[in-house]
Design a protein around this nucleic acid. Sequence first.
DNA 1: GCCGCATGTCGTCAGTTGACGACATTTTTA
DNA 2: TAAAAATGTCGTCAACTGACGACATGCGGC
Lengths: 223, 223
Amino acid sequence: MQARSAKLKKAPKHKKSTKTNLRLPRAERREQILTQAAEFFSEYGLTGQTRELAAACGISQRLLYRFFPNKAALQAEVYARTILGPFEGAWLGNLTDRNVSINERLTTFYENYYNKVLTRKWLRLFLYSALAEGDMAPNYIAAILMKLLETIVDETCFEHSLRPPDDPDFKRELGWNLHGAISHLAIRRHIYHGPHTVPHERLIKAHVASFVAGMPAMIENEA
Amino acid sequence: MQARSAKLKKAPKHKKSTKTNLRLPRAERREQILTQAAEFFSEYGLTGQTRELAAACGISQRLLYRFFPNKAALQAEVYARTILGPFEGAWLGNLTDRNVSINERLTTFYENYYNKVLTRKWLRLFLYSALAEGDMAPNYIAAILMKLLETIVDETCFEHSLRPPDDPDFKRELGWNLHGAISHLAIRRHIYHGPHTVPHERLIKAHVASFVAGMPAMIENEA
DNA sequence: GCCGCATGTCGTCAGTTGACGACATTTTTA
DNA sequence: TAAAAATGTCGTCAACTGACGACATGCGGC
């Protein structure tokens, strides 16, 4: 964001000598760029400059355009990896193991989700994209989230021997009670720079406890 | 890159025929600019161009600099009005009226909060600012929110004849269970463009019901 | 009427920024 | 080992963008 005074001094004009600007195979360089770009756009937003990104990669700006036709294409790939990637894991399986208590299942899942998905990098990229109307793959995420939300509501209702709501939209919204509270915890900590005084493990347990205990009230309230 | 706000301004102010915008008194023009700017920066982010904003106002870009020394100063004032403004209202009072049921108090409050504060404009401005590390007045908001969170936890605990947690940080975090769930509902609807199939009134009631019913579990869970 | 000033615009400067042609250097291959 | 291919940089263009000096214009007071 500040002066790019980091601009290399009298770089080795033709002599190899000291500077080891080693040449990387195409795939490897591409990988490095994508990794740096995820970090970079997450930090400075989608309007971050390609020159700055190149500097962060330690390469010339021109080289970026040897790998991606334009900035948007690079960002699309960053998005696909960093946002969609973490969702690939199907940890959903454990959620339906009724040999384990519902509280433990939910706590374990969200402990994992918080650490693997709701990171600073992920949240910033996601929010920048959403604010820019970046409809990048919201459907994909929506599909996975819908399944998750239905699962946690179904399982929690089963615990109480309750019949889940018939309206699928409303049913998922009940799941958002827990999912939203934990997502917002991550947003507060990573985006709003709220205090980290209470360890998140303790809070996830509390949110899960409230969700499970509050489920009957949410459903009965509908009478 | 392309049309960020490329919308040619429509007719001036009706009257005055073909001639350009009528001349406004300084205070009035300033007001108009601030109103438009809130809308504008909320929509296009803090990197929105002053030329586009001027066009939206129907004035020349130069004129903006007759009212504000620079872009940042204008944004700071927009922020103070649009973000801080809605917090001024002290609807907190009703929350402690124990003649009314806790569910009704919380529902009424959050119904109001959702409609008056958690609007699309407010959320977008707030998020853009937070992502840009805009430490603009987070303290002021924090102070009000802290009071709010403590109040709703105190009142809900009172309902259950429970002693609120001694640790003030943890106590506030419990309040975030409800506040976060509702904030995230607004974020989903206004920022993520999630579905609006279920009316928010119904969801606020559900979240409140879960919060109130789940409070004992959150506290006992600490054993 | 016409003076003076607040209101408002035009044009431009200097720094930015995405994109890319031309060229240089290293590695692979026949 | 020389040519081809791959890897990489320099320099530049055109559009963008915040900022502002110079100038124009409507309006109230006398």
